Computed example of a mutant assay.
Amino acid sequence: MRDDYSTRYSIREATTDDLDSARAVMLDTVYRDFGTGYVPRWHGDIIDLHGAYVAPARHMLLVAVDTLDGSVAATAALDSRGPAHPPNPRWLAERYPSGETAQLRRVYTHPGHRRRGLARRLVGELLDFAAADGGYRSVYLHTDPGVPGAEAFWRSLGEVVCDEREVTGQRVVHFEVPARVPARTPVAAGART
């Protein structure tokens, strides 16, 4: 019998109490899956999750919490910073400018909780958040295709806009994910449409 994972995990906006556990999931990912370990210029946001994702109004950090033990099983973040040049190609930074671009970041699932739909649920919530913001014109992300499952996951949700393996030899693939249309506000009774 398959577990019903939709009720086992609670998806919510991260609180101050979640930040240490979320950071642990993220650091485990950069050490285990990326093989790079912590690199300050790439991963500084992981150390200051509050400043990067919790405090800014247009940013968001979500966690998936295992209701069986209260642990953070997965993370996902969104901010309004587009890809920087350098290290990214200039045309990419121009196509996805800061302020107008919702960048998906830190979509990581602890190995013991993978293949349960958590990343897809988290990304869906972030796309809803970006749509509700009203100021984002595009949704962008980059991923390391060497991480098992990462490239296939993002290809299922978005379109490749630059595969640096073909251009620079770097192990980075850039994606655009279709933005969601903001939900319509119900029209007040008697109001004209």
Score class of each variant (00 low, 15 high):
V181M: 11
D17K: 10
G117F: 03
S156W: 02
A189C: 07
E159N: 03
T75L: 00
W42P: 00
A93C: 10
R95N: 03
D144N: 15
A131Y: 02
G135P: 01
Y140F: 08
R165I: 06
S71R: 13
A22T: 03
Y53M: 05
P86T: 13
Y96V: 00
E100T: 06
E151F: 03
R192Q: 13
T15P: 00
G82E: 07
T15V: 05
V139T: 14
G99W: 03
D163L: 07
E176Q: 12
I47L: 15
A76W: 04
G51E: 09
G70E: 04
L49W: 05
V177L: 13
G82W: 01
V167I: 13
V177N: 05
R116T: 14
A52F: 02
M60L: 14
R120D: 14
L61G: 08
F153L: 09
L49R: 06
P87Q: 06
Y108W: 10
D144C: 12
L27N: 09
P148F: 07
L122N: 03
P182Q: 03
A64M: 06
C162L: 12
P178G: 01
Y5F: 15
G146S: 07
A150K: 06
R171G: 09
A131L: 03
G169S: 08
W91A: 15
L49T: 04
H43C: 02
E13V: 13
V39W: 04
R90C: 01
R192E: 11
T16I: 15
T7Y: 04
L61Q: 08
S80T: 12
V54A: 10
L127C: 00
P86Q: 11
Y53R: 09
E164Y: 03
D48M: 04
S138A: 10
R2S: 09
T168S: 14
D18G: 04
G44I: 00
L104R: 04
V39L: 14
